[in-house]
Write a protein that binds this DNA or RNA. Structure first.
Length: 277
DNA sequence: CGTCTTTGACCCGCGC
DNA sequence: GCGCGGGTCAAAGACG
């Protein structure tokens, strides 16, 4: 996670959810090198976990505020729907919404109501939602790893944005109607704006990482965050479960950790199987 | 050789 | 009707 607000996180007091994990489970009596390494590694991860927890809570609070703003905006918008200047006003506010709030609207799905409002004639418009993904600004690629397999079929430079827009079709299942457009934000080039159109006609996406189309941890986080938005009243445990899973995944993928773990286990086994005389 | 990406050309809707 | 701009197609090249 590379949020630019990390510097401010130390002073932030999470109040919404308790996503912290208690990783202080290693007894201090370990004396062998592998044990010390494990303790050190877990301390580091514990520290990282606390930081992520604070970040997540910060994002969650921003999301709630954004949802409040959005509902208020929709209420006012509907109230003024009959007025002549509604269309131009809406465009203005929409663009401001997208421009100003991209830091937190990785949590938002700008879908359905907004789109149908824009195009009331197209009642059969496929479901559209936007996802904002922060990436490395120096990375010029337009690939967002979200777990599905995409085939790029076009790229275009649009008038309102100097960054090219890439067009993808879902190639995970034959006949899947889902398309997505990926373009860097005008305001912040480190943010990729991904617009999904339609719904997948296949089930679970792949779980193995394979090149650009493989499932990434950021993709998992994205899905988690989105599901969090969908069920805003939902359970804290979702986030907690995710953090636990992420922690486990990170640990098991770290060769240093697994090596140290193997060493520690074999050491313990050695100690227990060959008692000192 | 098959698959994927790139990119110029083309199509189509919309506003004037 | 015309021009503009977004979206799509498809040929050519890259790559494994």
């Amino acid at each position: 996670m590379s949020l630019d607000s990390e510097a401010n996180l130390s002073s932030m007091e999470p109040t919404c959810v308790d996503t912290s994990l208690n990783l202080n489970v290693i007894p201090s009596s370990h004396t062998d090198i592998a044990g010390e390494f494990l303790v050190e590694e877990l301390r580091r991860l514990n520290c990282e976990n606390k930081m992520l927890t604070a970040t997540l809570n910060h994002v969650y609070e921003n999301c709630l505020a954004l949802q409040k703003h959005l509902s208020e905006f929709n209420r006012l918008k509907k109230a003024n729907f009959d007025k002549e200047e509604t269309a131009s006003l809406k465009r203005k506010v929409d663009s401001e919404n997208c421009a100003n709030l991209f830091c937190v609207n990785a949590l938002t799905e700008c879908s359905s109501e907004e789109e149908t409002f824009k195009k009331p004639k197209q009642s059969t418009t496929p479901k559209v939602h936007k996802v904002f993904v922060r990436t490395d600004a120096s990375d010029t690629s337009l690939y967002v790893r979200d777990g599905y397999q995409w085939r790029k079929y076009g790229q275009k430079v649009t008038r309102d944005n100097p960054s090219p827009r890439a067009y993808f079709k879902c190639s995970y299942a034959p006949g899947c109607p889902v398309k997505k457009k990926v373009q860097r934000s005008v305001e912040d080039r480190s943010v990729l704006v991904t617009t999904y159109e339609g719904e997948h006609n296949h089930g679970e996406h792949q779980t193995e990482t394979s090149g650009n189309s493989g499932k990434s941890e950021s993709g998992e986080a994205l899905e988690l965050v989105q599901s969090r938005v969908v069920d805003m009243n939902g359970q804290k445990s979702l986030v907690q479960q995710f953090l636990v899973q992420q922690m486990a995944t990170s640990l098991t993928r770290d060769p240093n950790f697994t090596a140290a773990l193997a060493s520690a286990i074999s050491g313990n086994l050695h100690h227990t199987s060959t008692p000192k005389r």
